[in-house]
Design a protein around this nucleic acid. Structure first.
Lengths: 342, 342
DNA sequence: GTGAAAGCGCTAACAC
DNA sequence: GTGTTAGCGCTTTCAC
């Protein structure tokens, strides 16, 4: 990792330049810039004029060093190409900006190494808070953040053994309803394609699938469970494997939208008719779910609220670091369309 | 904008703590941490052991203040929910990380105000570079970045009147091919739904559409051009308006994928048959384009390369600030599927 | 090769 | 109210 970091060429003006031009002390400039009331209006006017004239922009690096904390949050999501995660962003951003914070996004790509390096960045840059969808329920390295007293909230997924706030959805229940819906529709061999089992969403959705089977008195066939990577290609590959089974499934419950897209693509190209030969239900409802053929039945999640709630918990935690750890669970809703109705 | 920023509770160890424990000077610790060769191996060993023991993490804020530049890039994209922009991210990230930089994403949401505030953040945090898809070709406020000597590259879109590197695709040519394809297929009244005209992509794609019409000797009917917002709802609304025309179009060229999705959704719900009653071609090819019904004809873009190239130009610019301003244009490719073939 | 010391630009005591 | 001053944690001359 070469780092060709070199200082800037032109130098920006500092608070001292402004102070000199306005004929006041740097402290007064600082007071004006931070909207502190106890400044003579005439001085304040002069300061603002000087700021304008010099095109002065405060150096947050110096400010953060002095204040010991930046006014930026990191939002570390596990897959930038998954629309579910990008939809969360707005909810977080809205709450952040109304509380005076900026949000920077970091894409961990389901890789613990990248996740860790972004946690390092957040810590090293002294960011004011971190919202993270952890790539692993055990190995995510948020310890240093907690040690440093940085407010942390996990979103979409939980952490085991870590005392942090979290916002998730009813993963098990949603998966159970989806699977039950397939069984109720007369499908007999329902398979499940889930995600990396080190994520709580994957394990909970799998648990919901299993619960629906036993509730219906259907014997659980382990060969009908495939573990993939939450990505499109993984979903396609898992579908191929499942359909190649001696006794292939007649329905698929797929644990996220990208894998559902993969499954749908593979089935379509293989000429498997949906919902007749194979029924299909995915977790995550997205705009294109009603545009594909057949229109997809899916478990819808309140993504904006997920983001909003996580952000609110972060604000709460920042203002009262001693507040008890909470876990919020938001409801999912099964949206029935054509892919599961034969 | 309240800002409830308060200092951290627990305090992290500093370079002085490490120095004391290792029985060396802070300068030596700094040398070890920055991999400078001229340090006694035994001392280096002691330093590393102390770092380990204390769980010491360098404070980048202090480091950046001293070095006058951070090792982070800002990637300011205009719509986090547009898969085209999220696909760019990987290309930028890969090049960044192999050059020792981290990337933080900022979502400007096509709003100049948000864009400006993220530019402020990038500047205030002394970030090492900025890759931006400007929300406006004239009013984007990158001036302060250039004044400060921050390397800037625009991606996907260009800026008029600003001497900055840029990476774009053959917008006009791609749009022209798409429109020509519709005309060649026998469609006579081809409409165009474009994006905010203050973006170079929207104006170039519109220009390509017009070029194809005149090339084919088709008279240009201004009522067949709709300007929308590059978002799904806007595409649906524009489609509704166009189809309500006394002489409605028999084909649509739509300037981005989200609006194409909106158009497809509206047409489907209105019972308009594609491609028979109305032909449809979109700009941007996405995974779901082949899964929808009918399968979408689209102009494909080399998104990963777009990101990669922009990042490479940023590296180049950082190492040689005096290098001439360049504009790179990458090729698009028309992918013909069912939505345009009757 | 190593350490002492200055200083990056800001904020917050503290003195007036 | 306003100014003086110290210091946030690091890097980097400059002596040795």
């Amino acid at each position: 990792m070469p780092s060709a970091h070199r200082p800037r060429e032109r130098s920006l003006s500092t608070i001292y330049d402004v102070a000199r031009l306005a004929n006041v002390s740097p402290a007064t400039v600082s007071r004006v810039l931070n909207d502190r009331s106890d400044v003579n209006p005439e001085m304040a006017r002069r300061v603002r004029a000087s700021v304008e004239m010099l095109g002065y922009r405060p150096n947050s690096v110096a400010r953060n060093l002095r204040r010991r904390v930046a006014s930026v949050w990191a939002l570390i999501i596990s897959d930038i190409e998954n629309p579910h995660f990008t939809a969360l962003v707005r909810g977080v951003e809205d709450v952040a900006s109304s509380n005076g914070y900026s949000v920077v996004l970091c894409n961990s790509d389901e890789e613990l190494g990248k996740e860790r390096s972004y946690i390092d960045v957040a810590l090293a840059e002294r960011m004011a808070g971190v919202v993270i969808s952890p790539s692993s329920d055990r190995d995510s390295a948020i310890g240093p953040l907690l040690d440093a007293g940085v407010p942390v909230v996990t979103i979409d997924r939980r952490l085991r053994n870590s005392p942090v706030n979290s916002v998730v959805v009813t993963n098990k229940k949603g998966a159970q309803e989806a699977t039950r819906h397939l069984l109720d529709g007369g499908y007999r061999r329902v398979a499940c394609i889930t995600g990396p089992t080190r994520t709580t969403t994957a394990s909970q959705r799998l648990a919901g699938y299993r619960a629906a089977l036993s509730e219906a008195g259907v014997e659980h066939d382990p060969s009908l469970v495939a573990v993939a990577d939450y990505k499109e290609a993984g979903g396609a590959e898992a579908t191929r494997t499942l359909l190649a089974l001696p006794e292939p499934p007649d329905a698929l419950f797929v644990a996220n939208s990208l894998m559902t897209m993969g499954a749908l693509g593979w089935l379509t190209e293989a000429g498997v008719s949906i919902p007749d030969q194979v029924g299909l239900v995915g977790f995550d409802d997205l705009p294109w779910a009603r545009l594909v053929h057949p229109r997809l039945t899916a478990v819808a999640q309140p993504t904006y609220d997920l983001g909003r709630t996580a952000a609110q918990m972060l604000v709460e935690r920042a203002s009262d670091p001693g507040s008890p750890v909470r876990g919020v669970t938001l409801p999912t809703r099964l949206v029935v369309r054509d892919s599961s109705l034969r």
